[in-house]
Write a protein that binds this DNA or RNA. Structure first.
Lengths: 262, 262
DNA sequence: GACCCGCGTTCCGTCCAATGGAACCTCCGG
DNA sequence: CCGGAGGTTCCATTGGACGGAACGCGGGTC
């Protein structure tokens, strides 16, 4: 028995010392999708989530059974409608959107360009809604996508009203470049944010692909806390955009009132 | 060992013979939320999901860490923005919505009432988008909510183009009442569905709370499969609603073209 | 036509992550 | 002062999760 014709014993099923908790792994599968990858094969899913193929398959099947994922006839996975259904119950996303929608539409009809509604999640803003007029210029951000806090109108509003500590942490670390490599000066940004708090609105210009200007205002909840920001984005024609300020602020206050705030 | 001074040994940590898989339990927590319960305390979460309090807390914390749930200062849980972000990647929900939006808006401006966009999920329709004109009548369904397949315009369209087996199964079993208790005749419904397939649109009246009529048409993908339905809902004034048919069909075809279909 | 590669899938021996009762704290209302 | 409910930590136990091996298959290369 020294010379074994099968040199390696089977050694089936070895769980490696440290596996992340199951739920986190399942979530990693969901997180493997992004705007450029809305449909993934099992192999892609396994690669992008960093999970072994077998584990990815098992979990993906469970998620498919729950409706969180869907599987098309060719075997590819995508995010399921059931997950969308649950996500519509998020107070800060769909809940907010529901009360804001009419006012956003009004604003869109008046300005005939883009209207954005965003909330802050950590160090970025998440776009909750975007309305774009048919003739409007390039498409900037995607609903459900993330925007940087510096360099966008809604970002400035959200950052200006963030908690003191969070704001300080952001300013200390995260002053990367954004449009095409221009670094953001922390002290200039700090002054801007103070002005936003004082004036109740933000105006941010972006030379990026096409020159655009954004006018944004805060949305408050019943407790007076800033919970979202709303903005219009128009082409920067050098003309005066200040005349948009009253409309944007009025719309933001209307939404706030819809939330029970002032 | 017959008379034990401490009658019950500690017996800590007893895993009951059958626990559902972890992922399903985590999902049960998410599924505990609904339109009337968008914010739940730990105790409510445990009750509604059927999980022990301890387990509910542990899983809810994991989900909170992942961003699927959020916890407010008063300790209540709600669906998180991160989950919304992922859900926007669902091709059949947000993906569809993105291409349909402009046409829905056009339709809304023309009819000045409600515009609906829905997909089928099992034996129900899920509302992907709803646009309501400011002056429009009562609010019927919620984005992300579910509609019955019989008794709604989009439902008829989706059911009419469902797979043969699924349609037969639905007709055999599920002819419950809907508006206020009127049972649906299977044979009548079957005739209606045939007409929908033949004519390319559906007209469904509802006496329910206020009398409304819905005109719906199918949306097809690149392969020609019906993947969604789109409709306008207007008050039933006895007037002719047929004049809405061309507009609805045109919009539906425009969306289909946007999906790469005919 | 033999070979290789990548994908999706099933199988199953191993073992650690998940489990939930006990116990403690706090905050109410009576 | 006490009973009840909500939220939390602790921890002994074990069954569900794990993933390498192995297979069938389709498509590309030599």
């Amino acid at each position: 028995m020294t010379a074994d014709p099968t040199p390696s014993q089977p050694a089936r099923g070895k769980r490696p010392p440290h596996g992340e908790p199951v739920v986190e792994r399942a979530f990693a599968l969901l997180a493997a999708f992004d705007a450029r990858h809305r449909s993934l094969t099992l192999a892609e899913l396994a690669r992008r989530s960093g999970l072994p193929k077998t584990t990815a398959l098992r979990l993906a099947r469970v998620l498919t059974g729950l409706g969180a994922l869907e599987r098309s006839e060719d075997g590819a996975f995508s995010i399921g409608v059931r997950l969308f259904e649950i996500a519509t119950l998020a107070p800060r996303a769909q809940g907010l959107r529901a009360v804001a929608m009419p006012y956003l539409e009004d604003l869109g009809l008046v300005t005939r360009q883009h209207v954005l509604l965003a909330v802050r999640d950590g160090e970025e803003a998440v776009l909750v809604e975007r309305l774009s007029a048919p003739g409007a210029d390039p498409v900037l951000y995607r609903v459900g996508g993330r925007l940087p806090l510096h360099s966008t109108g809604v970002g400035h509003v959200l950052l200006a009203h963030a908690g003191f500590d969070e704001q300080a942490a952001y300013l200390a670390r995260d002053r990367r470049a954004e449009p095409e490599g221009v670094p953001v000066r922390a002290d200039a940004l700090r002054r801007d944010l103070a002005a936003v708090r004082r004036d109740g609105f933000a105006v941010v210009a972006r030379p990026a692909p096409a020159p655009m200007v954004s006018v944004a205002a805060p949305v408050r909840d019943a407790a007076g806390e800033v919970v979202a920001a709303l903005s219009v984005v128009v082409p920067d024609g050098g003309a005066d955009v200040r005349h948009l300020v009253p409309a944007v602020r009025t719309a933001a206050r209307a939404v706030s009132r819809g939330l029970g705030g002032r």
